[in-house]
């Protein structure tokens, strides 16, 4: 096996009742890659991520991370070895101030291990991180209770929560959805920069235009199966992909 493969999914299947949410799916991911995953609603993208990160057990198949089998490992263990995911339906901690959401990640074993026992003051690190992610202008928001802030901000908090863990592989499940155009424009460079620094990223997105600007490779799912796996340019030309989307949603393939 190649050494620079960080994640390998082998022949994964999962069904709910009669529905095959993920159907014998395999994929490889190289270190440093930015992989996009797209597909119509209900095509099994989130299910795939839930299996990779331990929130669901697969019926069949294996997930290998850095060469070790992590199938069925507890989610917190998976997060602690550097495989971190964001949630599509974000569920922040509502009853605490916004920046404390990030402090929680900083309490994890992983951060303790990487930064040693003397990891400074968590509050300050959390606020620094959030300000880097664009809370600079309205930093008052950081001290409010999470349930009081506008929904648009929550996705950035969620992103900060993930980055704070210092991941090796970051999986973002529709992090851009619900964001306004300027917000997306400010987040995309952040993701790009993280990737340039060597972080491997998987992005599940419906915002194809923005995704295709930064993705190195794109996988298309339909009914739990992989129907395309190549560069963004080739995926755009692909006839099967186009027909999978017909009738589902009008998606603008032009850049």
């Amino acid at each position: 096996m190649e050494r620079d493969i960080i994640l390998e999914v082998r022949d994964l299947s999962k069904s709910f009742g009669g529905i095959k949410a993920v159907d014998s799916l395999s994929l490889n991911l190289k270190k440093g890659e930015l992989l996009g995953i797209i597909g119509p609603n209900g095509s099994g993208k989130s299910t795939l991520i839930n299996i990779i990160t331990g929130f669901l057990k697969p019926d069949k198949g294996k997930v290998l991370y850095k060469g070790t089998d992590i199938t069925g490992l507890s989610p917190y263990k998976i997060a602690n070895i550097g495989l971190v995911r964001s949630f599509q339906f974000i569920r922040p901690f509502y009853k605490i101030p916004v920046y404390k959401n990030v402090v929680i990640s900083l309490c994890s074993d992983r951060v303790k291990r990487l930064k040693g026992g003397s990891f400074g003051r968590r509050d300050e690190v959390a606020i620094d991180l959030l300000e880097e992610l664009g809370f600079e202008r309205d930093s008052r928001i950081l001290y409010k209770e999470t349930s009081e802030i506008p929904h648009g901000y929550l996705r950035r908090v969620e992103l900060a929560r993930c980055i704070a863990l210092n991941p090796d592989l970051l999986i973002l499940d529709e992090i851009l959805s619900g964001m306004s155009k300027p917000e997306v424009a400010s987040i995309i460079p952040v993701i790009k920069r993280l990737n340039d620094q060597g972080l491997t990223i998987i992005m599940v997105e419906h915002r194809i235009k923005e995704l295709f600007q930064i993705a190195h490779r794109v996988i298309v799912l339909n009914f739990g199966r992989k129907i395309a796996d190549s560069t963004p340019e080739e995926v755009m030309q692909d006839q099967t992909v186009r027909s999978a989307y017909i009738g589902k949603a009008k998606i603008n393939f032009r850049r």
Binding site: T53, F55, S74, P75, Y76, A79, N80, V84, R85, S86, F87, R91, P92, F93, Y94, K95, I96, K100, V103, I104, S105, C107, S108, D109, R110, V111, R161, C162, L165
Partner: peptide, 17 residues
């Protein structure tokens, strides 16, 4: 904070390691 977090949202807590 972690104790309060459990009541709020176990899943986020787990994915925070």
């Amino acid at each position: 904070l972690l104790i309060i977090g459990i009541k709020d949202n176990e899943f986020s807590l787990m994915s925070s390691g």
